[in-house]
């Protein structure tokens, strides 16, 4: 066990635990955007930074391991300032309209993304629709790397996408930005499953949103088992008006770790392909 103090309170966590885990153990809600339990921390978003006594710069709670005797501040003026600025920088450059977590954090830290002049540079760009299953709207991308990790070593190992370019021009891309059907993509949808901002979206959700019919509060979520092979993947069916509109898997599930294949993710359609006259009203 490791003993440290967070905001003056002593905390004991197992060896190898991160500062984030220590914070969660004592109920401190630390904002995260690029962090996910099932993925290798990239600590790129920096919204989880905390103040570590003796450290010149702030440290990322998601990646930094707790060490004996650490003294951590999670709500000091420096921490609040950095978190607020990071959120303002994101909000000023990226469309966060479908990023509920980021918007909630913006509110909490009083972030005002409109403060950087009249025409700040943004990542605004046309939406990419090049296949029947996914929509990619990189104007909403905060470059958290989660999709790249899920497509890569942390889950799917297909490596259809990577971060390309550099600096403010860095972006998620296939090789030479070829369309997904020409790329290595196998449509497992694991990138969408981990996207925190809605930059990656199932076509089903995108189309309903475009028609103004996406109604998340009215949706039910039901866990069941995939109807295809014998691995036994848990599917969470998101249902709106008796139609499956999205399929996810619980990240804590020991079989899937939140990941699925193309059949589990999209193969449900056969239960709701009805003759045109029978479409629910």
């Amino acid at each position: 066990m490791v003993e440290l103090t967070i905001d003056g309170a002593p905390v004991r966590v197992p060896d190898g635990a991160t500062i984030l885990e220590a914070c969660r153990a004592i109920g401190i809600d630390t904002p995260t955007l690029c962090f996910l339990e099932s993925l290798t921390p990239v600590n790129a978003c920096r919204v989880c930074v905390v103040e570590l006594e003796g450290s010149r710069a702030l440290v990322p709670a998601c990646a930094r391991r707790a060490e004996p005797g650490m003294a951590i501040q999670t709500d000091s003026p420096r921490v609040r300032h950095s978190r607020k600025l990071v959120l303002e920088l994101l909000g000023s450059s990226v469309d966060l309209s479908t990023a509920p977590d980021a918007r909630r954090y913006c509110e909490r830290y009083g972030a005002d993304p409109r403060r950087f002049g009249a025409t700040p540079a943004t990542v605004a760009q046309p939406i990419k629709i090049d296949n029947e299953l996914y929509v990619r709207d990189y104007a909403k991308c905060i470059l958290c790397y989660k999709c790249v990790e899920a497509c890569g070593v942390d889950a799917q190992n297909t490596f259809a996408i990577a971060v390309a370019g550099r600096g403010f021009d860095a972006h998620i891309s296939t090789e030479y930005d070829v369309a997904l059907p020409d790329s290595a993509c196998v449509y497992c949808g694991n990138c969408i499953g981990v996207c925190p901002t809605g930059a990656l979206m199932f076509s089903s959700e995108h189309e309903l949103r475009a028609r103004g019919q996406w109604d998340e509060p009215a949706q039910t979520q039901t866990d069941t088992i995939c109807s295809y092979c014998g691995v036994g993947c848990t599917l969470t069916l998101h249902v709106q008006e008796n139609e499956i509109v999205k399929v996810t898997s619980p990240i804590e599930n020991g079989v899937t770790h939140g990941h699925l294949c193309v059949k589990g993710r999209f193969g449900y359609q056969y239960v709701q392909n009805r003759p045109p006259g029978e479409l629910s009203s």
Binding site: T222, T224, I225, N242, I244, V271, Q272
Partner: peptide, 27 residues
């Protein structure tokens, strides 16, 4: 459809008995 329009169990390749749950009304 047994996996989404009704309740029950299935057993996976690792002999794991798992619950299927009803999410939809059958047509």
């Amino acid at each position: 459809a047994s996996w989404c329009e009704s309740e029950g169990t299935v057993t996976s390749s690792e002999r794991r008995v798992q619950r299927c749950r009803k999410a939809l009304d059958p047509p």
